Measured scan of single mutants.
Amino acid sequence: CHSECLGNCSQPDDPTKCVACRNFYLDGRCVETCPPPYYHFQDWRCVNFSFCQDLHHKCKNSRRQGCHQYVIHNNKCIPECPSGYTMNSSNLLCTPCLGPCPKVCHLLEGEKTIDSVTSAQELRGCTVINGSLIINIRGGNNLAAELEANLGLIEEISGYLKIRRSYALVSLSFFRKLRLIRGETLEIGNYSFYALDNQNLRQLWDWSKHNLTITQGKLFFHYNPKLCLSEIHKMEEVSGTKGRQERNDIALKTNGDQASCENELLKFSYIRTSFDKILLRWEPYWPPDFRDLLGFMLFYKEAPYQNVTEFDGQDACGSNSWTVVDIDPPLRSNDPKSQNHPGWLMRGLKPWTQYAIFVKTLVTFSDERRTYGAKSDIIYVQTDATNPSVPLDPISVSNSSSQIILKWKPPSDPNGNITHYLVFWERQAEDSELFELDYCLKGLKLPSRTWSPPFESEDSQKHNQSEYEDSAGECCSCPKTDSQILKELEESSFRKTFEDYLHNVVFVPRKT
């Protein structure tokens, strides 16, 4: 048989008469490798580009789960590009990614509803959504962080984005990388972005840091009482949809009607710091009717980097990364020049730590249904340095008659930039024990000054392991946590139920 035959053949030295091919099969003959313009397919066939392209389009058009959109890589027609490569849609070739590779997620039936953290986790790592997304989240724990972890990498949506009755959302900033909504599939009414009845939605994105392009379709905003109209108009300008909307697409009466839409800028007039305090004062603000001013709200939190936005980490279910302080308005003076500047002394802060701070007014709604208010920009203030805590785990070892090696770990709280350490030492008198000992005694162990690591005695271990207080009263049991108490109650309830079950099964009433 021919060298490319495997198993047997019907005619000697003829690659077209093989029972099976050793390498690849091409047009009725066995070959060692697939010549151009053919590609290896499933490690035994040679196919042309049209064959591989037909497989790709067949799966793409069917949208069946589990099928493969075949691509070409290293002269092979394979189910998908290997790690580190992405497909070129024009020629199906796998090309190296520039940075992290995109991950295209194809949605069944063309859309997916995100109504819980669990459903959001199914899209973790996706960068391109081939379909439409509907966000409908009523509640949950730590929602802002969970949504950002699972949806934060999405850069492109081919269909539309719909935010509907998501009472738990305060902001859409968890879509931190969303840059493009194509609108290839539109919501009824030709809408590519749809926001309806979101009672706590206050911000779409921080438009000073976020760009969003909507290729096709219109915007729809109705019944978002805490979303200011200025935020919607800003989205029109940034996304390129200005002029597409009709009169009733953006409701003037049901958007922002319960919001404090600040239209003035508060400026800080005085800032002073110490290692654990920050004193702030800002310019006074009074609405047209000074009785509408209820006070100020001061927001602050630790910020290692200057990239904080107002609604980071917030949701309507209680999660809030900001510390909020309510401040009463100052006494009002008739003389504008003698107006008191409101302020606040922030206490209990960490030394040498940068804080993000902003302040906003708290006002009631005027009778004319106009909203007044003022808010400052987010500023960054760093507390002063102070003395560091003591170095940890000092170790001293003498390696000769004239040297001592000293080692330690950095302090747990540096409280500033540590530039150097101060080492103090003092000579001590020799131990009298060394002169009084009889060095001729056998088995004498000389006193040693070398360091030995501390260890816990058996008594201390027994005390720590004991669940009861000892007789001397030195140790006591740790208080039980809520989960331990709940577990004990469940076990007790189970024992009672099981005992009742045994009584009912074992003891049967005697027939009379």
Results as ranks from 00 to 15, higher is better:
S321I: 06
N130A: 10
F175R: 00
K234A: 03
D328P: 15
N263Q: 05
V308N: 05
Q199V: 13
P336Y: 02
P394K: 11
S158N: 06
Q403A: 02
V308R: 05
E146M: 02
R281K: 03
C228T: 03
P388T: 00
A145G: 13
Q382P: 02
I395L: 12
V117L: 12
I379V: 14
K337A: 14
R179Y: 11
V359E: 00
F193K: 00
I278N: 00
L178F: 03
R247P: 07
P287A: 03
H222W: 08
D206K: 15
L265S: 10
L331H: 10
L151G: 01
D115G: 00
L294K: 10
D328N: 15
S396W: 07
N387M: 12
K409N: 15
T241W: 12
N263R: 13
S389T: 08
D326M: 04
M235E: 00
Y167K: 14
W322M: 03
T213V: 13
C105W: 00
R332L: 04
F268Y: 06
F290K: 05
L143H: 03
A195L: 09
L186K: 11
I135V: 05
S158Y: 10
I188E: 05
V359I: 11
R291M: 13
Q258V: 12
D292M: 09
F299A: 15
V363I: 14
A120D: 02
I114Y: 06
P391S: 02
Y160P: 02
Y300F: 04
V170Y: 13
W207T: 08
A316P: 15
D393E: 09
L406T: 13
T241F: 10
K242Y: 14
N200Q: 09
Y194T: 11
P351K: 03
R244K: 15
L406V: 15
F175N: 00
E109Q: 11
L279Y: 15
N263Y: 02
S400E: 15
L229V: 15
N198V: 04
V170A: 13
P342R: 07
T371E: 09
S319Y: 14
T386S: 11
M235R: 00
V381A: 12
L172A: 06
K301S: 10
T273L: 05
L204G: 05
K234Q: 12
I134S: 12
T118P: 13
A251R: 06
G139C: 14
L107E: 05
E122A: 15
K162W: 13
R138S: 15
H222L: 08
S239K: 08
I357M: 01
P351H: 06
F174A: 08
R347N: 07
E184V: 06
D115C: 03
P329V: 04
E109P: 13
I214V: 14
T383Q: 00
M346P: 00
I405W: 10
E155D: 08
S171W: 02
N211Y: 11
L123K: 01
K360A: 11
P284S: 05
V363G: 15
F299W: 15
N255T: 07
L212T: 12
T383F: 00
L178Q: 00
C228R: 09
M235V: 04
L280F: 01
V238G: 10
W322K: 00
K242H: 03
L331I: 10
I134T: 15
F290A: 14
V170K: 04
Y223S: 10
K177D: 15
K267H: 04
D312A: 03
A356R: 02
F174I: 14
I378V: 02
S239Y: 08
I137L: 14
S400L: 06
N248E: 10
N211T: 10
C126S: 01
S239L: 11
I214Y: 03
A149D: 11
D335Y: 14
K350I: 04
A385T: 14
L294C: 05
N130G: 04
Y285S: 05
G243E: 11
G140R: 08
T383K: 00
Q199F: 09
L196V: 14
P394G: 04
L280C: 04
T127F: 13
W205V: 04
L294R: 04
F268Q: 00
P284F: 06
L227F: 02
R244F: 04
Y285W: 11
Y194G: 13
L362A: 10
N307V: 13
I135F: 04
E155G: 10
N263G: 14
F296V: 08
Q382I: 14
A251V: 08
L133V: 12
S402L: 12
G189L: 15
D367T: 10
S132V: 03
P284C: 02
P330W: 02
L362G: 06
L219N: 07
T371C: 15
I404G: 00
K337W: 06
I154H: 00
G125M: 12
I357G: 01
L161K: 00
L298N: 00
A144E: 14
E109T: 12
Q199Y: 04
H210R: 14
E122I: 03
R124I: 15
L265G: 06
V117T: 02
D206C: 10
N224A: 02
Q354T: 07
E262L: 02
E148I: 10
N307A: 13
L204C: 09
R165H: 06
T371F: 03
S132Q: 02
K218S: 01
W205G: 04
H233K: 04
E283H: 08
P342T: 03
R347C: 10
D328R: 09
I154K: 00
Y300H: 12
V324P: 04
G110D: 09
S274N: 03
W205T: 01
Y167L: 02
G125K: 08
V128K: 05
Y194C: 15
Q354L: 13
I154L: 09
S333N: 01
L392A: 04
N263C: 06
K277P: 00
S116G: 15
W352E: 08
Y380M: 05
D312L: 06
I188L: 09
I379D: 01
F311N: 13
N190I: 11
D289G: 03
G125W: 10
T361D: 01
T241G: 14
Q216P: 03
G125D: 10
L123E: 02
K209A: 12
G256P: 05
A195I: 13
L161D: 00
S321Q: 15
T323H: 15
R179K: 13
Q306E: 11
L133W: 00
N399D: 15
T273F: 06
N141W: 15
E264C: 04
S389A: 04
L180F: 13
I214S: 03
F221G: 03
Q306T: 12
Q258D: 05
S192P: 05
D335F: 10
P287D: 07
Q203G: 15
F296C: 04
T127Y: 12
E246H: 11
C105K: 01
K301F: 08
N198A: 05
R244G: 11
A144T: 02
W352I: 15
C261V: 10
L219F: 06
D257V: 14
F221W: 03
G313K: 15
S400K: 09
H210T: 03
I114G: 00
H106Q: 12
P304G: 06
N263E: 13
I214E: 00
I181R: 00
P287K: 05
D377S: 10
R179C: 14
D115L: 02
K409H: 03
G189I: 01
L133H: 00
A120M: 07
L294F: 09
I395A: 13
P351W: 02
E187F: 11
Q199M: 08
